[in-house]
Design a protein around this nucleic acid. Structure first.
Lengths: 193, 193, 193, 193
DNA sequence: AATGAATGAGCGTTCATTCAT
DNA sequence: CATGAATGAACGCTCATTCAT
C-alpha cells in the first residue's frame, strides 16, 4: 500500500492559498489548482470528495492553525485589558505569520456559500476562547455595550478591513500598524478610559 | 435610431441585485440574469461591453445612488461630532432604504476582482465628502489618530460587518441597532470623551 | 432573431443514430456527437436540456416516425389475419426503410435507463393501434393465448432478434427474410392453422 | 508464491452481477465494483487484464455455468419434441436458478460491444448441443423452416423478452409462465401440430 | 497477491461572448 | 435596438489504468 504523498497534498493546499490571494476565492478552479500544484487534475479528488469538501476541510485546517495558542495568549494577559488585547492581537500576529492562510480565511468568511453551513458552525466552535473572554469581561461590566455581536464587530472588523485593504492594493502590512488599530478598537470598547 | 429600452435596462440591473442577494455575486451569470429579467440572452450586451463592464457600471451607479445626499447630511450637522455621525449614519440609512444596492456594493467590495481597478478608483473618488470631513476634523485635532485609512476602518468596518452578518444569516436589521454601533465607533475615535 | 438551423439539428440526430449503430448507445458522448455532426460542443444543448432529454426526445421522434402509417396498414388488411400480418410487418418495413432509427429504438429498449420512465410511457402510448388490434382479435378468440405480454413477445421478439443479429454481425437483412419470420410467428399464434 | 484469494475473486464477480442487475451494465465501474466487493480498487486487475477482459471472462464463466446440464437435459427427453422442450426450458430453469448470472448474460447480449467479438464467438461455441439438436430435428423434417437463425429466434427470443420485461419492471417471474411461452414457441415451430 | 495513491483522458455541462437576423 | 442560435473554452468530476509499496 502506497502512503499518501504529503508533499503533494501540501502543494495542493498551497496552490489553493496562493490562487485565493492572487485572484480571490472565485478564481479557484480544480484545473488551476492542479496546474499550480504540479499534480494531475484528478489528484485533488484523492484528498477531497469535491470542491466544497476541499474548501471546507482547508478552512477548518486554517481555523485550527490560526487558533493555535489563542488560549495561551489570553491566559498570558495579566489584567483583563491585557487579556483582551492579547486575544485580538493574536489574530493579527497570526496574519503576519500566516498571511496566506489568513487571507484564505477572510475570503471564505466573505463568501460563506463556498462551504457548508456545518463547516462554518464547526469553525465557530473553535473560537470558543474568544467568546469565553468576552463573556467574562462582560459580566465584570467592563464593556461599553453588552452585546457579543457588536463587540465582535467593534474589535475585529477594523483591523481585518485594514488587512484586506493592504492585500487588495498589494501594499505591505506592518504588525505595529495593526497593533495601533487594535489598541484603538479596544479603547473604544472599554468603559474606563 | 431607436432609444434603448430603459425598462429593460432597469430589469437587468434589478436582476443583478436580486441574484447577488440570493446567491452571492458568484452566482451571477448572463444566462441567469437574462432569464430573471425576462430579456434575451444577448440584451445585456446592448447595454454593457462585457460582464466586467456591467458589474463595474452598476457598481458606480450604486455608489452614486448611495452617496446621494451625503454632502447635505454632513452639512446638516451642527457640531463636528454631528457632522461625523451624520456622515457615517448616512450609509446605514441608505442600507436601510436601498438594501439590494447596498448588498451588491458589499459583495463587490469583498470581491473586487469582478471589476477593474479603475472602477474601484472612480468609486472611491465619489466618497470625496467623507475624505474632506475627515481631513477637516483631523486638522482640528479631534481624532485619536490622524490616519485616514485607520479612521475609515474604525468608523465603517464595524457596522458593515454587522450588516453583512445579518444578511448572511437572513436576520432582520433594525436601523437603531446600526445607530448604536456607529455611535460607539465614533466615540472610540474622538479624543474628548 | 435567428432561426434555428434545422440542418444542424438534423446532423446532431444523425450523429446520434450513426454512433449508436456503430458503437452502441453506451458509446454515445456529447463530445463524439458534436465532432461527428461537425458542430460545436455546446450546440446540442441549444436543442436539448441534457443528455437524457436528448435521448428521450429523439426516442419519441423515432417512435413517431416508425409508427407513421401503422393505423393505415392495419386498416388495409382485409381479414383479421391480414391485419395482424400488416401490423407486425409494418415495423419490419420501417426497419428496412429507416434502419438507423430502428436500431436506435432497439438500443433504447435494451437500455431503458438512458431515458426517463415517463418517456417510455409516452412512447408506449403511441403503439395504441397494436394494442387495439390485439384486443380485437383476442375477443374474437383467434389467439392460442389471451395474454398481451406473451402475444407481444411471440410476435415481435423473433424478428427483432434476427434484425439485431444482422446488425451486430454487420450482415445485410432482406425484407423477405423478415417476412418469413413474421409469417411463422403469426401462424404460431393463431388458433386455426 | 501466493495463491489468489478465490473469495475475493468471487466477491468481485458477485459485485459485477449485482451492479448489472441494479443499474445495468452501463453502471459498472471499477470503483463501484471494488467498493461493492470490499476489495481495493487495484484488485480486479490482479484477476483481469482490463475491463473488457473482465466482462468477457465473466461472460464465458456464466455461459459455462448456464450450459451445465444442457446436454443431459436434452438426452433426458424421450421424444424429439421432449428433447426440444427440455433444451429451451433448460435456459428458463437456469434463469430461475441463477437470475443474477442470466441477467448479466442478457445485458452482455444487448451490449455486445462491452466484450470482444472473439469472446462472443467462444460463447456461441458452448451452445453446441443446441445446434446439434436443431440439426437433428431439421434433418428429420420436423421444423416448419430449416434455418437455424430463424429457428433460434422463434424459440428463444419470446421467453427472453418476457424475462427482460419482468426484470425491467421489477415484477416477479414464475417458471410456469416461461413454460407457457416456450410451449407455444415450440408448437409454432414444429410441423405436425 | 494485494493495496490504494496517482494519473490524465474524457465525461456532461455551463457560460461569456458573437453575430446573423 | 433586440433577439436567441451558435460557439468553444473552461468547469467540476469520474474512471480505467498504472505502479510503488
Amino acid at each position: 500500500m502506497r502512503k499518501i504523498d504529503e508533499g503533494k497534498k501540501e502543494r495542493v493546499k498551497l496552490a489553493v492559498f496562493e490562487i485565493t490571494r492572487d485572484e480571490g476565492i472565485a478564481g479557484l478552479s480544480f484545473g488551476k489548482i492542479a496546474k499550480h500544484a504540479n499534480v494531475s487534475s484528478g489528484t485533488p479528488y484523492v484528498y477531497y470528495k469535491d470542491k466544497t469538501d476541499m474548501l471546507g476541510k482547508i478552512y477548518l485546517d486554517v481555523k485550527d492553525l490560526l487558533d493555535t495558542g489563542l488560549r495561551a495568549s489570553i491566559a498570558a494577559g495579566k489584567t483583563p485589558e491585557d487579556k483582551l488585547f492579547n486575544c485580538v492581537y493574536h489574530f493579527a500576529q497570526q496574519f503576519h505569520e500566516h498571511p496566506l492562510e489568513s487571507i484564505y480565511l477572510d475570503e471564505v468568511r466573505d463568501n460563506p456559500k463556498v462551504v457548508t453551513a456545518e463547516v462554518i458552525r464547526q469553525g465557530n466552535r473553535l473560537a470558543q476562547p474568544v467568546d469565553n473572554l468576552f463573556q467574562e469581561l462582560n459580566e465584570a461590566g467592563m464593556f461599553v455595550i453588552n452585546n457579543q455581536e457588536t463587540l465582535y464587530a467593534l474589535l475585529f472588523a477594523p483591523f481585518i478591513m485594514v488587512q484586506k485593504q493592504r492585500v487588495v492594493t498589494d501594499q505591505p502590512m506592518m504588525l505595529s500598524e495593526l497593533e495601533t488599530v487594535i489598541r484603538l478598537s479596544i479603547q473604544g470598547v472599554l468603559k474606563n478610559r
